[in-house]
Design a protein around this nucleic acid. Structure first.
Lengths: 102, 102
DNA sequence: GGCGTAAGATCGGATGCCGATATCGGCTTC
DNA sequence: GAAGCCGATATCGGCATCCGATCTTACGCC
């Protein structure tokens, strides 16, 4: 279902950016591996929004002879991730039932 | 967080409409009780879309001297609900971890 | 320097969101 | 039986987002 796409994209970005450095092309692959096909016209504006909201910080860097913009989560980003996880857990409980979600 | 709003609204509507008859005002209360504030300008177009997609059927009825449009899930609606639940479970596993979601 | 390439950025039409406002149907009151 | 009320539903308009297609950038290579 595509309704989860938006939430899934945001969660995955924050999730990974909280643990390591991520960049757009890698996120595209990562999301695709979970079945979320996202076009660059969606991903890049999303990254920019998260940065504008102070949840990510970016930096340009040359890796393997390629210019990349790498992102990391800020403290606010990790906080937002925790809140998003909480919201997801609650939604899962509501719809899947307490017996499926601890 | 508001990223889940859209998915949550759709899931709750299908979930309840699969088990009983629902109407707009009741869904507004139900969603609000779960912390999802939805404006009529979002809810009613959403109901219309679900009906146009064949997931709900509606019928006008007078209840307690009030005209209401009541909705029930179709077979396709129940199928969509099952798929949405599956997508939610998978997203929860990815982001919350297998140990939290059965 | 010019080229190829991969990553990122942007554009534009379509869709969705949502607060505010309008409408609708049945009821009540006179 | 006309007027007006009220709750429920419908619509409107402005703004944000989506996303495929396309353009730009920056580097290495020759």
């Amino acid at each position: 279902m595509r309704e989860f796409q938006r939430a899934a994209v945001r969660l995955h970005i924050l999730h990974h950016a909280a643990e390591r450095e991520v960049h757009g092309a890698w996120m595209t692959e990562e999301l695709a591996s979970h079945g979320y096909q996202i076009s660059p016209g969606t991903l890049y504006p999303t990254l920019h929004r998260l940065e504008a909201d102070g949840l990510l910080v970016s930096e340009q860097r040359v890796v393997d002879g390629r210019m990349r913009r790498i992102y990391r989560a800020t403290a606010a980003g990790r906080k937002a991730l925790a809140e998003d996880r909480k919201a997801l857990r609650e939604l899962a409980r509501e719809v899947l039932g307490d017996d499926e979600v601890r």
